[in-house]
Structure formats: structure tokens, C-alpha cells
Design a protein around this nucleic acid. Structure first.
Length: 563
DNA sequence: CCTATGTGCTCC
DNA sequence: ATTCGGA
DNA sequence: TCCGAATGAGCACATAGG
């Protein structure tokens, strides 16, 4: 077996791809890179190149976020943490920050052998496994040691890799095409393989050594999570219905997605990111054991927190159940979950992915028994193109406290991991609030040297005080962002790191999905999914929405749905 | 023992 | 999650 | 139309530190 390539080689490839914008050229370059690698390197490079340290199925985490990363850079290059953050503010890129500090550093490498791709991966595994007392310091130290032995360009990509933001324009689409290209196999087979095993490393090595036949033999295995099918926003009720010759409508539940694998008496539950959350959800597992017939099945559905009145509870309550390790039983009583099932991917030995929804639905109906207590049920499905019926379903869903409806194509297969147009979601257009901008943060990457997100606040009319409600950084077009930055530049009253204090006299119209209670902001409320609609040039701070109005809207959310 | 900080995950 | 922008 | 890269709030857990 040939030995591992150097990490500097990987860094060089990244640096060559970074300025390329043509997607064809990107995948061609990745393909060239892949072709020259041995199995081990290919397995690693396939997820590294998309900025992923460990493959998704592997339940391993580095446990290094921005803060430890900055600390490591500071340690490695003998700088202050503050200097790292200041340079980050100016470069807008943590990789470039490390690269510059590396080239100015006088620290000597600790390791004599050169850093290979495999040794990098081994070190990531070491970092991931560190736990217990002083673990944070040990993680920072080990990463710093790696950085000391890296050349500037290596430091750039090592750091970006740890941040899981390679920012070279390579994602799963590019890797899929690169594997197809490098080993002369059809791209759709590569994609299919990736959906099933969640690891481009495995897929690439299979394609390389066993070709099309090998990819073909990859199959769905109960017990191993598969990527979930995603939905796209519908352009409206009529438009959505019009997309399909045979549409069906279901409620869009306000909960959290779960994928349930039943293998005899054994049940495994996976989250959207394919994390195994079985031990947090014993109540769901019990329901599956009791009400799902047949020996093996993979089901897709939504876990919903329900209140005593049977209505869904605020989304925050679901988060208190997911990933819980302690007091699981007690919390299951306090916040009971119901399970709405809407799809089935596997049944007694065969994959149903390629079956049309219509047929999967029949399998689902045959597989799930009715719970007289209604804790586990199938999402009601209405097969109709009749707009008034669809509208009625939509209103029912909202009255029941859910988010809206899903419009699905009865003739479509289950396409894992794809935000295809075979599932459309339809939600109400939310109201907006006019909020005062009281501060901002300097952005990164594409938003370097631009104010990338803005603190928003409502007004307390009696005192004129501003009460913060969170931040908004989405919904802003590029040219608007530079205009905003220019406008706010003159209003900066303080600056620490990436945080900027602003004269509070600009009003943003902000849209949102929901108002949530919050302990993090002094208004006591925060917005779920805030986005900027426009700048209210016609309004000044005193005309912004008040805390009373926010409270009214919050109270209204729960009851307004009744009508 | 309590609280603050950091990370990683949810938002079909 | 939402949204924008390049290909 | 797809895909990559910006950005949001809030929860549990592990760890650090008083």
C-alpha cells in the first residue's frame, strides 16, 4: 500500500480550487485529485474536501468550536486571543487569519515528520476523543501543536477544516460529480450510494475498486440512518397544487423530524442529522414496538410535543426532549411526545425508496396499527386538486396549532437528502415588525468587511428604552448589504472585536415565523427565523413597534389559530 | 454546589 | 431553519 | 433549478471556575 499524501498537497488542491467558480471545473479538479489517491486517502479526502472532518454517520465530534479554535491559533503562534479576533475582523476569514499569523510566527515545529493526510485525520480522532478534566485545554493544546508544525497554507486549510467551513465551493454536489468523473461511474449511482451510506469516502472507494457493480450493491440497511427527503417552499396554494397531476395534502406538523428503524423488538430512532436519539425517546420507541407490525421497517415522521389540551406545545419544549441523557423518564411524563408518521422507506426485507408515494402510503397503512389513545398515528392524507378542500385542510392545520400543509406528488419516489420539488411546504405569510437597529456584527467570508447581522429591538414607550429581541442577518441582498454597511459606518459609536454599537435611529421591517419567549433578550421575546424585509426610511426609532404590540402578537399566536 | 461558557444539535 | 447569487 | 455560503433562536451536556 502506498503511503499517505502530505496535508500540504491537500492544502494546495484547496487553494487551487478556491478561486474557481465554474462548477464543472471544480468537480473536474476534485476528480483529478481523487484519481491519484490510495484507498485510505480517498476515504478521508472525500469528506475533508467538503469541509467535513468526520463522515456524518460516525457519531464523533471534534468538540472544537470558534472559541477553542481562536485560542489554539493564539497559542500556536504566540499571539493574544484578542489579536486573533482583531485580525479575523479584518480578514473576515479564520483560515486566512491563521495563515498570516503562521507566516509571521517564530515558533519552531514540534514534529519532525511532515504532516500527512492520514496523520491529520488521526489527530482529529485524538482531539475528538479527549474528555474529562482539563479536556478543553488539552484539545486546544493538541490543535496548537498541529498548527505549529504546519506551513502557512496548510494552517489556512487546517483551521478552516476544524471550523468545518472550507469555503472553496465544494459540497456534496461537486463531490458526487467528481467521484463519477474520476472513476467513470454514473453520477446518479454515486448519489444513490451517498444517500444510503452517508459517507462519500465509502462511496468513492467502492466506485474506485468495484465500479458500477459495487455502487449497485450498496443497499438500505435497517439500523443505519439514511438522509431524509426534504421539502421546498411552495409559491402559493394554487401554484403548488398545479405542480402535480396527482397532488396529496398533509398537515405540516410543528415538531421535529424523526426516522424510526424497527428490527424485530429493537428500535432505533434518528434525528435529521442522523444522530441516534433512541435513548432520549423511550416513549416513542415503546409506541413503535407496540403499534408497528411486521419485522423490519424504516419509517419517517414527526415527533410532536403535546399539551394537556392535545394541542402542540411551543417548539422549545421539543428541544427539551431531544438529546436528553438525564431525567429522561420524568421529562417524558412532563412533555409527552406524539408521533405522526407520513412515510415508509423499508418494509420486511425490501427498500421502498423507488416506490411511488401512493404505494408507500399503502405499505404505511398496513404497517401501523391504530392507537386508541392517539399517541401514534398516520398523517391524514387528502388526495385532491380542489382548491377549496386544500384551503380547508390548510385552515384546519393552522387551527390545530400546526405550521401549514405539505403538498406532495403521489407519483414521486422517496429522494433522500434532496430538497426536490416533489414535496412542497405551504406556510402562512407572517406579519412583520418594525424594529430599531441598535448594533451589528462584522461578517465573515462573503460578508467580510460588511456588517453581516444586526441587533434589533422594540421600544418601551414610557421610557423610550430599547428592548432587544435578537438579531437579523438573512434576507439581505449583497448590494443592499454594502449600502447598509456604508450607511451604518457613520453611526458606529463603539467597537469591540466583531461587535459594533450603533446609534439607534434606523428601523428595519423584519419578518418572522413566530414570536418566542426568551430569557436571552431584555424584551423577553425573540423571533424565530427573522429576516429583513426592508429598511423603513419613513420611520424613526420612536415609530418602531412597542413591547406592548409584541406582547399582543405573542398572545395572539396561540389563540388566533382557533378561528 | 452553583453558575458561566462553549459546543453541537434542532427548527419535516 | 431562510435567503441570496452564481452556474 | 440546483447548490453553496451567508445568516437566525434555543435547548442539553460537558467542562471550568468560584
Amino acid at each position: 500500500m502506498s503511503s499517505s499524501i502530505l496535508f500540504s498537497e491537500f492544502a494546495r488542491v484547496c487553494s487551487e480550487i478556491e478561486p474557481v467558480s465554474s462548477s464543472l471545473e471544480i468537480s473536474a479538479r476534485v476528480a483529478d485529485f481523487f484519481r491519484g489517491l490510495n484507498d485510505d486517502d480517498l476515504g478521508t479526502a472525500a469528506h475533508f474536501i467538503m469541509g467535513q472532518v468526520f463522515p456524518a454517520w460516525m457519531e464523533r465530534e471534534l468538540g472544537v468550536g470558534p472559541s477553542f479554535l481562536y485560542e489554539s491559533i493564539a497559542t500556536a503562534y504566540g499571539m493574544q486571543r484578542r489579536a486573533v479576533e482583531d485580525l479575523l475582523r479584518r480578514t473576515g476569514d479564520i483560515g486566512v487569519t491563521a495563515e498570516r499569523m503562521c507566516s509571521q510566527s517564530v515558533q519552531r515545529p514540534l514534529f519532525t515528520e511532515e504532516l500527512t493526510l492520514q496523520r491529520t485525520y488521526d489527530n482529529f480522532n485524538l482531539i475528538a476523543r479527549i474528555e474529562g478534566k482539563k479536556s478543553q485545554k488539552r484539545k486546544v493544546k493538541l490543535l496548537a501543536d498541529l498548527l505549529i508544525s504546519a506551513a502557512p497554507l496548510e494552517a489556512r486549510y487546517l483551521v478552516r477544516l476544524v471550523a468545518e467551513e472550507l469555503r472553496i465551493g465544494v459540497g456534496s454536489g461537486a463531490v458526487r460529480d467528481a467521484v463519477a468523473n474520476a472513476f467513470d461511474v454514473p453520477a446518479n449511482l454515486v448519489e444513490r450510494g451517498y444517500m444510503l451510506v452517508n459517507d462519500f469516502g465509502v462511496v468513492a472507494v467502492t466506485a474506485k475498486n468495484e465500479g458500477e457493480k459495487g455502487l449497485d450493491s450498496l443497499t438500505l440497511i435497517p439500523g443505519r440512518p439514511i438522509r431524509m427527503m426534504l421539502a421546498q417552499l411552495s409559491g402559493g396554494m394554487e401554484k403548488g397544487i398545479g405542480e402535480f397531476s396527482r397532488p396529496v395534502v398533509e398537515w405540516k406538523f410543528d415538531g421535529a423530524r424523526v426516522q424510526v428503524h424497527k428490527m424485530g423488538e429493537e428500535v432505533q430512532i434518528f434525528s435529521r442529522r442522523m444522530e441516534n436519539i433512541t435513548s432520549s425517546l423511550p416513549d416513542i420507541a415503546a409506541l413503535i414496538r407496540e403499534f408497528v407490525s411486521g419485522d423490519t421497517a424504516i419509517l419517517d415522521g414527526e415527533a410532536i410535543a403535546v399539551g394537556p389540551d392535545g394541542r402542540p406545545r411551543p417548539f422549545q419544549d421539543i428541544l427539551r426532549r431531544f438529546r436528553r441523557k438525564y431525567d429522561v423518564g420524568q421529562m417524558a411524563e412532563e412533555i409527552p411526545l406524539h408521533l405522526a408518521l407520513f412515510d415508509i422507506l423499508y418494509s420486511d426485507g425490501s427498500s421502498l425508496l423507488d416506490e411511488p408515494l401512493e404505494s408507500r402510503r399503502r405499505f404505511l397503512e398496513r404497517t401501523v396499527k391504530e392507537d386508541p389513545e392517539g399517541r401514534i398515528y398516520l398523517a391524514s392524507q387528502l388526495a385532491t386538486g380542489d382548491l377549496s378542500e386544500v384551503e380547508r385542510t390548510y385552515n384546519e392545520a393552522l387551527s390545530a396549532g400546526h405550521e401549514g400543509i405539505m403538498i406532495k406528488n403521489l407519483d414521486s419516489p422517496y429522494t433522500p437528502g434532496r430538497r426536490g420539488k416533489n414535496w412542497l411546504k405551504l406556510k402562512p405569510i407572517m406579519e412583520t415588525l418594525d424594529l430599531v437597529v441598535g448594533g451589528a456584527e462584522w461578517g465573515e467570508g462573503r460578508r467580510k468587511n460588511l456588517l453581516g447581522s444586526y441587533e434589533i429591538a422594540c421600544v418601551e414607550p414610557e421610557t423610550g428604552r430599547l428592548l432587544m429581541m435578537g438579531r437579523v442577518g438573512s434576507g439581505i441582498k449583497d448590494d443592499q448589504l454594502s449600502e447598509l454597511t456604508d450607511m451604518f459606518r457613520e453611526k458606529i459609536i463603539s467597537e469591540t472585536g466583531i461587535d459594533v454599537g450603533l446609534q439607534p435611529d434606523v428601523v428595519f421591517e423584519v419578518a418572522y415565523e413566530e414570536i418566542q419567549k426568551s430569557v436571552n433578550y431584555d424584551s423577553g421575546y425573540a423571533l424565530r427565523f427573522p429576516r429583513l424585509i426592508r429598511v423603513r426610511d419613513d420611520k424613526s426609532a420612536e415609530d418602531a413597534d412597542t413591547i406592548e404590540r409584541v406582547t399582543e402578537l405573542f398572545e395572539g399566536q396561540r389563540t388566533a389559530a382557533q378561528n
